[in-house]
């Protein structure tokens, strides 16, 4: 070591210590450092690697660089396009229905006169916490054409049996029903939280103006709830576009790809067909779609952040 440097060292050290001592200017870094390290190691790095992978082809134990081939192939892949279509179908039908339903339930549970609120909240929230194995099994038992409970009830009322999991339309419907069952309560809780945040004074002011319940809902509740509804819409959109469970366990994507989701096809491509590069490319296309949709929703709802 250089002697000159050693001479300077004590001085440098003290000022360095002063610098790194937590103060209002640098404390942010301290608070953020642990999670950022975790993010870089366990998120950013794998993301970069899989991104590189999306330009490669894996065969016979080796990765080969293929440029944009995977991406180009993707737009000629009719199953991928079908899966995209299915995802949009779910998005357009299921998300609005679910959020509307969640909003209605939330408003009801928020009623002043209602007793046992805790019970209702839990009852509606429960589906969101089901373990996947149970969810799969129970819903297959419920939706089975010949032995399922739903058809059992239908036939008790003299209605025809419905081929829940095999019809081109009914299978999509089944997935939508299952998703709605699972996630309505979750969104309801978030919306309920928002409703409870609207202060009584605003409603009281409204009461003096002589607005009825419906007017009150549209004039006061809805505008104030906009940011929360937006929050639900965006998280649901992301959830729907990454939909995997229902397609995988209820219909296996069938019949004839009528219900397969992009994430399900992605899993098949990577883990069943072992085309890792192709699967990676698919996931980045999905990311772009999600990003664009979220942005549109923000702009549409006029959110500022």
């Amino acid at each position: 070591m250089n002697t000159q440097l050693q001479l300077h060292k004590p001085v440098q050290k003290r000022s360095f210590l002063d610098k790194i001592k937590p103060n209002p200017k640098n404390a942010g870094y301290y608070f953020i450092a642990p999670i950022m390290v975790l993010f870089c190691v366990f998120m950013v790095y794998p993301i970069i690697r899989s991104f590189i992978l999306s330009f490669q082809k894996f065969d016979a134990g080796h990765y080969k660089f293929v440029g944009f081939d995977n991406y180009i192939l993707l737009f000629k892949d009719d199953i991928f396009l079908q899966a995209l279509k299915n995802n949009f179908w779910y998005l357009i039908i299921q998300v609005p229905i679910m959020i509307l339903l969640a909003l209605i339930l939330a408003v009801m549970i928020n009623s002043q006169f209602l007793k046992y609120k805790g019970f209702f909240r839990m009852a509606f929230f429960m589906p969101a916490v089901t373990a996947l194995v149970a969810y799969a099994l129970v819903f297959r038992l419920l939706l089975n054409t010949d032995f399922g409970f739903i058809n059992f009830i239908l036939s008790k009322f003299g209605l025809p049996r419905v081929d829940w999991l095999n019809g081109e339309f009914t299978s999509k419907l089944s997935i939508i029903i299952a998703m709605t069952w699972r996630w309505t309560g979750y969104n309801m809780i978030i919306l309920l939280a928002g409703l409870q945040g609207i202060s009584e004074e605003i409603y009281e002011a409204c009461d003096i103006d002589g607005a009825n319940a419906v007017q009150r809902f549209f004039k006061v509740t809805l505008p104030l709830m906009k940011p929360i509804i937006l929050f639900c819409a965006i998280t649901s959109t992301i959830g729907t576009l990454q939909l995997f469970d229902e397609s995988f366990i209820l219909t296996k994507g069938g019949p004839d790809n009528a219900t397969i989701s992009v994430a399900h096809y992605l899993y098949n491509t990577g883990f069943r067909f072992m085309k890792f590069g192709y699967a990676a490319a698919m996931s980045y296309v999905l990311v772009i779609i999600i990003a664009v949709l979220s942005l549109i929703q923000f702009k549409f709802a006029g959110g500022d952040e």
Binding site: F39, I47, I238, A263, L266, A279
Partner: peptide
């Protein structure tokens, strides 16, 4: 990172 499907 919320948007990345975790299978990949």
């Amino acid at each position: 990172t919320i948007m990345i499907p975790n299978q990949v």
